[in-house]
Design a protein around this nucleic acid. Structure first.
Length: 927
RNA sequence: GGUUCCUUAGCUCAGUUGGCUAGAGCGCACGAUUCACAUUCGUGAGGUCACAGGUUCAAGCCCUGUAGGAACCACCA
């Protein structure tokens, strides 16, 4: 296969993905089907992640793109480490979200949900979703998600329902669940209740009205302030603060409720704030959370005046059936007519809205199923405080505990058909048998009535809150079973958006501990929102939405993944722009061209072999011939080649590795040896990048990992190593190092690395499950010498730029073995017309590096032109020297700082002094 | 009111247990260019690390305070 001159991602990605998938690489190796029934022997290294299930009915958005980029990189990294990885994909029935879409369709067709039974509706939505499903799965593939598709879990799968019912039954028996008539967040449009977390509070302009209530048996009146005059029909008291002296005299008396014949008491309660409004407040226990509490304290009657459709009920005939809005107008008008409306004030207050349709949430008295959260959260808090889960970013652990400590009981009933039916049946109200329980648990939810012990029970028509079932996600996806070892539970990490810390992560933790006794995951990595390039939230209305799949199509999957990981850290909402995807694309292309070039060198080399010429490939270390570069090397370097024993090397691998056990020794197909400074240097750099990468992966520092690799591949491998190899080629080392680099980058750029791997002539198998590279062996002194050579070359280049006239001059070197031994390389990398040894005293501009005798062959006039640059240089070195001297002048520093730092400072001073003295001497000669 | 976070280059952000001259990407300026790559190569300019104190031999990092900004939770009759 021939490498094209640029990497066109779109030409390869689909095939590569298909090849991975059909090879079985995505499945956990040793336990392909870890079923509910089967139990597998535990294995040493497992690594499991469950994907936060995207909406089965929807398209992926940029946040999913980030999720996959992070999770798949982790999974692929651990797969390369030869862990048994399991990336479990999912699809969410997205109860309410999907229901809203479906109901909207239904309305468009002129139908209403009330025309159908729950079972019919459920079936209809199921078909509706089935039609749409598959879209998001294709998109996950395009992003390169290497998940085990056979194990895809849908949130309405039987195993999910079964598990949810088991838990519900356990909770019911344990007394964690109760049926209660409480105020719930009710959306009159969708006609369902919500959990507190699903309600959005928004600041809104409103009005505060003052209404006079006449005190019975006197001509006094009490003025209450309210934003909701229409609920006065549900008032069952007026409250004043017990310490409020204005009202102490009338506490215990009654007032006449305006527009009605009812009398209600004046009560004393702390809830009334003397400083707010008139200090007196009407109490409507059936339609206000605070009032509900007040009502409980004073045993007040609860009168519901707004029905499920948001219309007035239990009110005088004139108001019956009005919407709340109509009723408010009429009440105000009628009060005004009676002279009871005493004031009107504009205020801004926070109002709860349905997060989906924006309708004002009506706190409504309803019988619902609740979870006693104190019990559930208490367990979770204890585990969290013991630090059993590590959070990234760390502070989210504290935030979560704070949330759990204040959490109120959780309403888990929803009045929508699309969801898991609540498996509870209510006794026929006409049955007066007192021995029969009011409610019974039964999973025959397909039947509307059941008979137990001769008693008829009716099905509860509600379904579970989505979060109730999704809180079981780690349990169901890993097929956790009581009493059976499961190497995949707890998960290694839960990766998801910081925005659902409370809604989802908190509930998974609570439920995981409750069901299994163990935390469901050991670590939590939370990502922030992906904002647009100006730091604005992406939204359709702003028109700044970036579609991940568009970017994949335009730049490639790898480019997208690299681009979205760069510049991003845990928990923060951060900007994202197409530019960073372009950078990713450029890196892929760079790597492609590096590989293309190396392959061409390999092909050339093979041609030589065919022609009967010698090559150093495949020779053992002992009989390794020296490539031409050796004759150029200094005697010093040649004698410092002193490789560690293989035992030492193994120790290095162990000590620098972030893993608990040594990586499996896996003999490379390519045997290699280093023959030059540049070669030793690149081995050292690859080893360093590898070690850093392992630490970065352990700590979830993806952005740093990507930068680390980019710097290795581009700034080091391409710009220095490959360039130096254009002189003297070490084919086995080129092969070996390229392989290592490809493997290191694979977790982040799976497609391009695999495509290259498949295109290279000598590689075997697939890179996706290639073993993680071992450390390369090299000569550290030789590697350091290359650093010196690089510094010299950079300084020469810089000096060329500093000399006016934009011209390159010949290089003359004095007694400088580094340059002497690398003349050809120096000439090539600086672009100098010549590099020659000095005869006699060299003249011209001397390169401003201590320890080097390098001159540029320029005439006297050019030397003078350079004097300004030289002056600046002298000043700069002087400043550095001053800073170092100041440090050494401090006796405390010498005393207390670590010895190696002091030594380093002393050495640096010596070097700077030498250099500055030399530069000053040169400057004098010019003047 | 409670909790948490942020303030570092023109922009978006790194900066680990305090330790050499504070980094990256993008952008900008100057220069290069047949021979892997213009999705290229080389060089450079940009920083009082929000401010004020403190601890320390040493502070972007730790402590206290101030200013500005953000998110979430609760409440708002």
């Amino acid at each position: 296969m021939k490498f094209a001159s640029s990497y066109e991602a779109g030409e390869y990605e689909t095939d590569i993905y298909a090849a991975w998938e059909s090879s079985g690489a995505f499945k956990p190796k040793k336990s392909k089907h870890f079923t509910q029934e089967g139990q597998l022997s535990p294995v040493d290294h497992t690594y499991s992640i469950v994907m936060p299930p995207p909406n089965a009915n929807g398209n992926l958005h940029i946040g999913h793109g980030l999720t996959v980029a992070i999770e798949d990189s982790l999974i692929r990294y651990h797969r390369l480490l030869q862990d048994e990885t399991w990336y479990i994909p999912g699809a969410d029935h997205a109860g309410f979200e999907t229901w809203v879409v479906y109901e909207r369709n239904l309305e468009k067709q002129g139908h209403s949900r009330f025309e159908y039974s729950r079972d019919e509706l459920y079936q209809n939505v199921w078909d509706f979703v089935a039609e749409q499903r598959g879209n998001m799965e294709l998109q996950l593939r395009a992003l390169g998600a290497s998940c085990s598709w056979d194990d895809l879990t849908f949130t309405l799968d039987d195993k999910v329902v079964k598990r949810v019912y088991q838990t519900f039954e356990k909770m019911w028996k344990d007394g964690f669940i109760y049926r209660g008539e409480k105020l719930v967040n009710y959306c009159p449009k969708h006609q369902t209740a919500f959990a507190d977390i699903e309600v959005e509070h928004k600041d809104e302009k409103g009005k505060l009205w003052d209404i006079a209530y006449k005190v019975i048996g006197s001509d006094q009146e009490i003025i209450v302030s309210t934003t909701r005059p229409e609920t006065l029909f549900g008032d069952t008291a007026v409250a004043v603060n017990p310490s409020d002296e204005r009202y102490t005299a009338i506490i215990g008396q009654s007032v006449k409720l305006p527009l009605t014949d009812r009398e209600i008491p004046i009560i004393a309660d702390e809830h009334a704030d003397p400083a707010y409004g008139t200090g007196a407040v009407k109490i409507t226990p059936a339609h206000d959370y605070d009032d509900f509490e007040v009502g409980n304290r004073h045993d007040l009657e609860r009168i519901r005046v707004i029905n499920d459709e948001g219309k007035m009920e239990n009110v005088p005939d004139a108001y019956l059936g009005l919407t709340t809005e109509e009723c408010r107008k009429k009440v105000l008008k009628d009060l005004d007519a009676q002279g009871l409306l005493r004031g009107e004030k504009k205020i801004v207050h926070s109002v709860a809205h349905c997060y989906k349709c924006g309708t004002v949430i009506e706190p409504t008295l309803k019988e619902q199923w609740f979870i006693d959260v104190e019990k559930l959260a208490g367990l979770a808090i204890r585990h969290l405080k013991k630090g059993e889960i590590k959070f990234y970013p760390e502070n989210k652990g504290k935030v979560l505990i704070n949330y759990l400590e204040g959490l109120k009981d959780w309403n888990i009933s929803r009045q929508i058909p699309w969801g898991i039916p609540i498996p509870m049946f209510k006794k026929n109200p006409e049955n007066t048998d007192e021995n029969a329980p009011e409610w019974i648990y039964d999973t025959r939810v397909d039947e509307q009535t059941i008979e137990v012990d001769g008693v008829t029970y009716f099905r509860d028509e509600d379904t579970f809150d989505t979060w109730f079932s999704s809180s079981h996600w780690p349990i169901v996806c890993t097929n956790w079973q009581e009493g059976k070892d499961n190497p995949f539970y707890p998960l290694n990490v839960m990766e998801t958006g910081a925005d659902i810390l409370f809604a989802w992560v908190a509930r998974m933790i609570m439920m995981g501990i409750y069901v299994t006794g163990e935390v469901p995951f050991k670590e939590v990595y939370l990502h922030g929102l992906v904002l647009d390039s100006h730091g604005q939230k992406m939204s359709k209305s702003k028109g700044n939405v970036l579609n991940p799949l568009d970017l994949v199509e335009k730049y490639g999957s790898d480019a997208f993944r690299l681009g979205i990981l760069r510049g991003r850290s845990a928990g923060l909402n951060q900007a994202f722009s197409e530019d960073s995807v372009k950078t990713g694309r450029n890196l892929c292309n760079k790597l492609w061209n590096i590989s293309r070039f190396i392959q061409s060198l390999v092909d050339e080399d093979n041609q030589h072999i065919l022609n009967g010429n010698k090559t150093n490939e495949g020779l053992s270390e002992d009989d390794k011939g020296f490539s031409p570069v050796n004759s150029q090397q200094s005697p010093v370097q040649a004698t410092t080649k002193n490789y560690r024993s293989s035992e030492d090397r193994l120790n290095v691998v162990n000590s620098t590795s972030a893993r608990r056990t040594p990586i499996k020794e896996s003999p490379s197909l390519v045997s290699y040896a280093t023959n030059s400074m540049g070669e030793d240097w690149i081995c050292r750099e690859i080893n360093n990048a590898r070690t850093n990468l392992m630490a970065q992966m352990r700590d979830y520092r993806f952005s740093e990992a990507v930068e680390n690799l980019q710097s290795l591949i581009w700034d080091k491998y391409a710009d220095w190593f490959i360039e130096s190899q254009k002189m003297y080629k070490n084919i086995p080392l080129l092969k070996k190092t390229l392989e290592n680099i490809l493997v290191l980058l694979h977790p982040f750029a799976p497609f391009v690395t695999e495509t290259i791997w498949q295109n290279l002539s000598w590689t075997e198998g697939m890179i996706i499950n290639h073993p993680w590279p071992e450390e390369l062996e090299y000569d550290p002194i030789s590697a350091e010498n290359f650093d010196r050579l690089r510094a010299a070359i950079s300084e020469i280049r810089r000096t060329y730029q500093d000399i006016p006239g934009n011209k390159k001059y010949g290089i003359i070197f004095g007694d400088d073995s580094l340059i002497d031994d690398n003349q050809v390389l120096v000439q090539r990398l600086t672009g100098a017309p010549s590099v020659i040894a000095a005869s006699g005293n060299p003249k011209g501009i001397r390169i401003a590096l201590a320890g080097r005798e390098i001159y540029l062959d320029v005439d006297e006039k050019t030397v003078k032109d350079y004097s300004n640059a030289l002056d600046e240089r002298i000043l700069a070195v002087g400043r550095e020297l001053d800073a170092l001297n100041a440090r050494m002048m401090n006796p405390n520093y010498v005393d207390k700082a670590p010895a190696h730092l002091v030594k380093e400072t002393q050495d640096a001073i010596k070097e700077k002094e030498t250099l500055i003295n030399r530069l000053k001497k040169e400057r004098e000669l010019i003047a």
